[in-house]
Design a protein around this nucleic acid. Structure first.
Length: 321
DNA sequence: GCGTCCAGGTCTACC
DNA sequence: GGTAGACCTGGACGC
């Protein structure tokens, strides 16, 4: 067992980040409520697969335990990825300032909410987002579980049926038969989209690092992501949130319903009405929308206890079923 | 237990 | 540019 530590920024809450949306409910994440900890099976760029146990023993540090000792290079790679997952380098100063100034959002500072959990890679975030489109959360879980179990690399030092597996990399998926993805992974009609996406990456036609470039404007990034088959407005708007850009709403059936219940006595409305409600928050409007519709998760006495676990519906969508 | 219907987001063909 | 229909599955519902 090896331990690595990461310093935490102010306004960080492990609990609020883990339960910020549905990702922690999907493999290869595994969350534990008491004591609070999240496990993740990570394949680092060098190809090693590590079982990480992540917790925060205090307000100042994130503790990452690995099942086995890691060398310096592997340790650096793990730290870089975990930083990305928990958005430790993202600046939320303006977001918290706006939250403090808005009586309806002052609760955000109380819970240090706002950081949306990410996966170990943008590839994994994007595939999971694709798996949330046009289906129930249960089906999303099935698709992701199949991808991990049938295509993911087994945990290092523990190869065999009982070992846990990392999320498959693009190369693992690109060599699959479309029918296998359709029937065995249960991707259904999404299978050709996933296959095309993974092959574009392995063939060098698509470089996901380009999407993490701060120099691209958000509308341009939206256009680029929308050009990938299978990623429509909902998926791309929420991927932009994953990329730290919160300009777009990314509403889906669950969040529209939630907004209607909260603000319009249950009467549905056009997305433009919803957007106008958060316009004053500028580039943070999409995040304030998400905070607004997910507020009740934080307000519960035991917001994320075993008896009241979020039951995510889409990307980021608990409580639909 | 079985059959039917519906919800969910995106793409494509058509107007 | 807007719209209808197809895509696929799990789950709810009725019998």
């Amino acid at each position: 067992m090896d331990k690595i530590y990461l310093p935490l920024p102010p306004n960080f809450s492990l609990k609020s980040t883990i339960f910020s949306h549905g990702w922690a409910d999907l493999e290869p994440f595994k969350r534990h409520v008491d004591p609070l900890q999240i496990d993740y099976i990570l394949e680092i760029p060098s190809g090693q697969v590590h079982h990480l146990h992540i917790s925060s023993p205090n307000d100042l540090q994130l503790e990452i335990k690995t099942e086995h000792q890691v060398n310096d290079k592997a340790g650096e790679q793990i730290l870089k990825i975990v930083k990305r997952m928990f958005r430790l380098d993202e600046d939320y100063t303006e977001f918290y300032l706006l939250a403090r100034q808005s009586p309806e959002f002052s609760w955000i500072t109380k819970y240090n909410a706002g950081r949306l959990l990410r996966c170990g890679s943008l590839w994994e975030d994007m595939v999971k987002m694709l798996c949330t489109t046009n289906c129930t959360w249960r089906l999303t879980q099935i698709m992701v579980e199949n991808l991990v179990k049938k295509l993911g690399k087994a945990e290092e030092f523990k190869k065999g049926n009982k070992s846990m597996r990392a999320f498959p990399n693009p190369g693992n998926v690109a060599v699959c038969d479309e029918n296998f993805l359709r029937q065995e992974i249960k991707m259904g009609y999404r299978a050709p989209y996933l296959l095309g996406f993974s092959q574009a990456i392995t063939e060098g036609k698509l470089n996901l690092a380009d999407f993490e470039n701060d120099n691209i404007s958000t509308p341009d990034l939206y256009k680029q992501l929308r050009s990938i088959k299978g990623f429509g407005d909902y998926a791309v708007s929420n991927l932009l949130k994953i990329l730290g850009r919160y300009d777009y709403l990314g509403a889906d059936s669950w969040s529209r319903k939630k907004f209607a219940e909260k603000h319009l006595d249950g009467k549905s409305c056009d997305d433009s009405i919803i957007a106008s409600n958060y316009q004053k928050y500028g580039k943070w409007s999409g995040l304030f929308f998400w905070m607004d519709v997910s507020e009740d998760w934080y307000q519960r006495e035991l917001p994320f206890g075993k008896s009241q676990e979020p039951n995510p519906k889409s990307q980021i969508n608990p409580n639909t079923e």
